[in-house]
């Protein structure tokens, strides 16, 4: 019944001759995490900038909690938090001073800004570093501070634009934990990412964006199910790749993808394939097989399939 808390309808945006958005539609129900997934240049950041009132769409409209991002930008800004691709904190100040600054600028009282800063530093594991200058923080700590800086005014909707880009694996895990913590509070999160495992781990729903449009939506499992099962074949000798590829092509009706020097992957639409049949066919073609596996596809494969940029073996 209730409208999505984040709603975008037919957003268009061009920069010079580049059409960054070509009719992007998006709806995020309250209290969920939406992963906006897409390659570089797909329009993810442009969409976030419009939703966060930093940029106006050329056409289309968007609302946050029912408020129009163009006409009622002031109301929208009271309800959102934005963590962009930079750690937009002041390196010269301490972590605590940064949070108090953003608290005050978010129009909290002096006392509340102070209390809220202390709470958040404690909760997100930055209490020990709170009184050090941010310039001395690690990349992960800086991003975490950036993330909690937009929590200080208790936003209803949080926009995270590629929150883990450029972080080491440990930093990524720290950010993931922080996002899960937020979700537990009921904050609605819209996060953009190029990393499929990130969307897989964090998002309730995924919107796959390519060339300024949403080309697929669904839960991670739904998206994976659209591809049916996936077959992995590892051959013992790279010379066996070509015959193996033609066997898979004959079976599945699609070109397999080369995923390594000695391995192939093919989607098997509709299921109904028996592993034993496949092995027998490969054997008949004289392919020495090291490993054969049937499994659910990964999001990577879904993504590549959807954006149609796979490398095929001929």
């Amino acid at each position: 019944m209730t409208d999505p808390i984040v709603l975008a309808e037919g957003l268009h945006k061009s920069f010079g001759g580049t059409r960054a958005l070509r009719g992007l539609d998006l709806g995020v129900p309250e209290g969920t995490v939406c992963g906006v997934l897409g390659p570089n240049g797909a329009g993810k950041t442009t969409a976030v900038r419009i939703l966060a009132t930093l940029s106006d769409p050329d056409a289309g409209r968007a609302t946050i909690a029912g408020f129009d991002v163009v006409r009622e930008a002031g109301r929208v800004r009271e309800r959102i938090g934005l963590a962009g691709q930079f750690a937009a904190v002041d390196g010269q100040l301490t972590g605590r001073a940064n949070l108090r600054l953003f608290g005050r600028l978010g129009h909290l009282s002096r006392g509340e800004a102070r209390r809220r800063a202390d709470d958040l530093l404690e909760r997100f594991g930055l209490a020990d570093a709170a009184d050090r200058r941010v310039a001395g923080y690690s990349g992960g700590m800086r991003r975490r501070l950036d993330l909690i800086a937009c929590l200080i005014q208790r936003p209803e909707v949080l926009f995270l634009d590629e929150p883990t880009t450029g972080l080491d694996p440990r930093g990524r895990l720290e950010i993931w934990d922080a996002v899960r913590e937020l979700v537990a509070d009921g904050t609605t999160v819209l996060l953009t990412t190029q990393y499929l495992d990130e969307a897989d781990h964090l998002a309730d729903d995924i919107a796959v964006v390519d060339q300024g449009r949403v080309i697929a939506t669904g839960t991670p499992d739904e998206l994976k199910a659209t591809l049916g099962d996936t077959l992995d074949v590892v051959v013992e000798d790279p010379g066996g790749l070509r015959p193996a590829a033609s066997v898979l092509h004959a079976l599945a009706g699609t070109d397999p993808t080369m995923t390594g020097a000695d391995r192939l992957t093919a989607p098997l639409p509709g299921g109904g394939f028996r592993l034993a049949d496949i092995v027998r066919e490969l054997d008949r073609a004289g392919v020495a097989v090291a490993d054969v596996r049937l499994r659910r596809p990964s999001l990577d494969e879904v993504f590549l399939r959807l954006t149609d940029s796979k490398e095929t073996v001929r």
């Binding site: 009271e78 934005l82 962009g84 750690a87």
Partner: peptide
Amino acid sequence: SQGVMDRFRSMPTARLA
């Protein structure tokens, strides 16, 4: 250049402040 301005702009902070 460090995105701090965008953060200010996405907050209820007065623009001319």
